[in-house]
Write a protein that binds this DNA or RNA. Structure first.
Lengths: 110, 110
DNA sequence: CCTAAAACTTACTTAAGGTAAGTTGATAAA
DNA sequence: TTTATCAACTTACCTTAAGTAAGTTTTAGG
């Protein structure tokens, strides 16, 4: 992990964790795991998120190829967001975070 | 994962990912994995980080119990930072992120 | 036709992070 | 032994990211 092409590995790990660490990113992917959702469904699933940031994060996730935006009935005002295979693969990261939380009793220590 | 005490699981996952997603958090834990380091060693290992944020993040990590601060020779100006078992356990999260990066070709998609 | 909902946008305020200079105690060098 | 340098922070200030709230545009329903 620290060798041999550490610089490359480090920097892509860095970029990745800073990307998924952006506010609400983790929660948006999380709520989409059970299946595709409409904009307002995601919004109500995530208490505290604002319209502005939800739109921004969704666009970033679409651009990064982790979710796909679908227009239902080819209407601009009926939208569904769905994880791509790369987005679904993030599930393993979520699982490992949850394992880590349990192990270190995150609730009490922070 | 979405049942049965989802609210609890969601919120601790949310708090955890927002904590580790704070800027430089991931990199600081990463650089400490091979073993304890002095303040300036961490600083030079992470290009771009500033004194202010390094100090702030180190304090947050110490308070959360993921790293331990040791005063060498009981001098205030000789300090070493070392991962605790909970900090070391984070290694599994790092590994799963790296797997995910490889799988989804993070370099090219973002 | 009128109202309301879905999915954004825009404008503005606050908080997080970046930059740079300064402080303090310990060590080394002249 | 004074002088300078280094390690590990602090403080003050500025910029960018995030939060808040109101407005816009299709589209659907009564």
């Amino acid at each position: 992990m620290t060798q041999p092409n550490c610089t490359h590995t480090c920097s892509s790990y860095h970029r990745a964790i800073e990307f998924i660490g952006k506010r609400w990113m983790g929660m948006i992917i999380y709520t989409l795991l059970p299946g595709p959702k409409r904009y307002h469904e995601i919004h109500t699933s995530i208490p505290g998120i604002s319209d502005r940031l939800l739109t921004e994060r969704l666009n970033e996730l679409v651009n990064a190829g982790f979710i796909k935006k679908k227009f239902i009935d080819s209407s601009i005002k009926k939208v569904e967001y769905e994880l791509t295979p790369n987005g679904i693969a993030f599930q393993e990261v979520i699982k490992s975070i949850q394992k880590w939380i349990d192990l270190c009793d995150f609730e009490k220590t922070t």
